[in-house]
Design a binder for these strands. Sequence first.
DNA 1: CTGTTAGCGCATTCAA
DNA 2: TTGAATGCGCTAACAG
Lengths: 342, 342
Amino acid sequence: MPTIKYIAQKAGVSPTTVTNVLHGNYARVSKATRKKVEKYLKKYNYTPNMGAMILAQNDSRIIGVIMFMEPRWNETVLEDPFSSAILGAIEEEIRSIGYFFMLHTTTSKEEVVRLAKTWKLAGLILVWVPSNISPIIVDSVESPVVFIDSHFNNDGKKYHNVGLKDEEGGYLISRYLISKGHKNAVFFANDTSFEGTDLHRFKGCLKAFNEEKENYHLINKILLTKERSERYKTYSQITKKEMPYTALIFSSDYYATEAISYLQDCGLNIPDDISITGFDDNIFSRMIHPHLTTIHQNPGEKGRIAVSMLMKLIKKQTIEHPNIELDVDLIIRDSVKDLKAK
Amino acid sequence: MPTIKYIAQKAGVSPTTVTNVLHGNYARVSKATRKKVEKYLKKYNYTPNMGAMILAQNDSRIIGVIMFMEPRWNETVLEDPFSSAILGAIEEEIRSIGYFFMLHTTTSKEEVVRLAKTWKLAGLILVWVPSNISPIIVDSVESPVVFIDSHFNNDGKKYHNVGLKDEEGGYLISRYLISKGHKNAVFFANDTSFEGTDLHRFKGCLKAFNEEKENYHLINKILLTKERSERYKTYSQITKKEMPYTALIFSSDYYATEAISYLQDCGLNIPDDISITGFDDNIFSRMIHPHLTTIHQNPGEKGRIAVSMLMKLIKKQTIEHPNIELDVDLIIRDSVKDLKAK
DNA sequence: CTGTTAGCGCATTCAA
DNA sequence: TTGAATGCGCTAACAG
């Protein structure tokens, strides 16, 4: 494993010169020696030692991507095509600009801070951070930070976030349900904490239903747990009692899909017996039958924008829009019954 | 950011003593000084600098996980819940033993070698490496290497691999089809290269059909591409011509699911018009209707075993089983028609 | 049991 | 346009 020193010796120049060639400081090297050095660099297949680089310049070119989630990446989280799509896009983007991708899941802010220090991370991308700990992280970490899908308390701090028009999504899907004659619906949140995206989507639904006259109600919110058997129990109650609602609004395609499958197994017909909507427009939303009516978003775009925003931060460029909210689209498929049609 | 030197100074001891405390070399430190040092370590919240560690001992504690795939993590690869489940398990495992997880996708062996050198990787986990380049990587890299789902040419080299009884899986699913009266089937491979897992699954199918008398045929293999529209074209041909087969054997649930959805949209009834089987038993195999008859495997286990094997390699412990083939199970659901029933 | 010292590979002064 | 010297934080060999 050749070092700069070694190359320098072989080429008969000083280490400094080799460094200058490597860094493209061509103003400080004559063309002739530059060519010569490049030849030896290639000949001995020089590879930098990142350890030395970190030590010398306090920057690792590693971008840490932290997914905030339960200790275990269980089926309900990472197997959701939506997470993977974000990660895939981020990885590709980071790699293409010559940085490195360190992935970490945790729910501990201390762990994030420690990771950033230990590795002198060039930057951090934090996915799904609860709003109460984001300010702490931003304050304790030296590296620039970009959030994905976070919502913040209005504490005057400047956050960089790539999110979605969650509220508008909730509004759109609810308006659509109302337009099809649905007067009573239930909202299923992805998480028991019910904050962030869940909360905003819910607010959007609420807004739509509140615009209507009486008899229109977003009846309730139900918080789904990470435990599949418990969710099944929740779904099963839908089949039993006299349902005071005609539509189920899910805050993710993942759970909407799961519920449809479960309810179908119970003998229900979707959407004839009950209408169901999702959120995300993941691959499986169009693979199941009935195809799922849902809100579209582009997870890859989220990841890519997050990386490019982070790079601007790293390079200390100015950022015009520190808080991006990507657009949503209503995707009408077949999981909602038209109650007005006869 | 306190350093060892700084802590040593504050505690009134030498850096060596601090190091010894940090490394648990308690034989070289008196209990009293140990306590004292620990106090200061905590007080100043000491965090190691990995750059210095890499430099000093040529080991980064980073485990590089390389996914061999097309430059773009597109929907067809990472959004497959199967990949994410492997990654999730690996990440969790690596983190729990105090190592770090660097994720990289590529198809270039040079890139793998460079990454390993640049970061002095503690170890490498290579997923889905084509058999022709695995020996090259093993030879060019200093770090221990564990493969996942690779198959090797018999070149006498010692590989460490965590795989699956792919052939048995193919055999099981084919025997099942035959038992239900299916005499002619087609095999759909996940990749155009048709090697590794695809090939072995196919072989298993072939074996089952060849055991039968004449008139039993695994008619053909069809190699699916990464381009969705092309796959749709492939599926659509199934609907058009007079099908000389009654079952489609897919080498993954992912594509089986996709095909079912597509064919249903074309008006076909699964399994009445045609039977379809998958491979993997991912989450969506039981969410779609008809539920998919498939071969079960446990991706999380694959990831965890790979990490533990790698750790043994890193610690230079002996490995009894360098080539593990995990068991498969036939999962019978509703996507295969019983042709013998009337 | 404790401390001194040298060196890992690189970037970065500063001098020539 | 080139080179020599210094230090980043840590480990390990050696000395006490």
